[in-house]
């Protein structure tokens, strides 16, 4: 499945390429700089490990939707491929609906969990503040800003799945074979 090449889809893709590329670049830079500081300068960046973990969480959830579109979220299609067109479409509709139910739960409970974590502070935020500006910084950033990646990412993925579901419903009506994201086609 390819996203409709509307203006919104183009902007969405451009934003994702920019954001995800930037997060990966940051992750990459922090890991390498940390090695240099600890081994080369004998002055560890105590916040490095923590910040990397947070970035990984964000990258993982934010990229799910695009990964789905690119066919990089592995699925088994043996049964669907063996079925006649209409039955295949019906099966795909079932599968997509089930996935949407799961994502619905993840959006709701992910949001609740992020709110629950609002009381938890990120020590890294204080450490970075100290390292850069000296003295003690303002009371730290809340972990809400990390964990909110789950509802955001799940919602984005849900949009992609919903678009696919619409395509499958169309196929069900017209009797055509449902199409799927091109598995592995975009691998590396």
């Amino acid at each position: 499945m390819t996203a409709p090449s509307t203006g919104i889809a183009r902007i969405y893709r451009a934003v994702m390429v920019g954001l995800l590329g930037l997060m990966m670049a940051l992750l990459f830079a922090i890991m390498c700089v940390q090695v240099f500081f600890r081994y080369g300068l004998n002055a560890s960046l105590i916040w490095a490990e923590e910040v990397c973990r947070y970035l990984l969480i964000w990258v993982s959830f934010l990229a799910c939707g695009i990964a789905y579109q690119r066919g990089e979220i592995a699925a088994m299609r043996i049964l669907v491929d063996a079925l006649p067109a209409r039955a295949a479409a019906l099966t795909a509709v079932l599968a997509d609906s089930a996935v949407l139910v799961l994502l619905g739960f993840l959006v709701v409970y992910g949001w609740r969990y992020a709110q629950f974590a609002d009381g938890q502070r990120m020590p890294a935020a204080d450490f970075i503040w100290n390292d850069i500006l000296g003295g003690s910084g303002p009371a730290g950033l809340s972990l809400f800003w990390v964990y909110v990646a789950i509802p955001v990412g799940s919602a984005l993925l849900a949009v992609h799945v919903a678009i696919h579901l619409a395509g499958c419903l169309g196929a069900l009506v017209s009797g055509a074979r449902p199409s799927f994201p091109d598995a592995g086609g975009n691998q590396l």
Partner: peptide, 16 residues
């Protein structure tokens, strides 16, 4: 924060 402050005061290079 507490452990970082403690071990910096001692003079080590604390690693997380």
């Amino acid at each position: 924060p507490l452990h970082k402050a403690t071990w910096e005061a001692v003079g080590t290079n604390p690693v997380g």
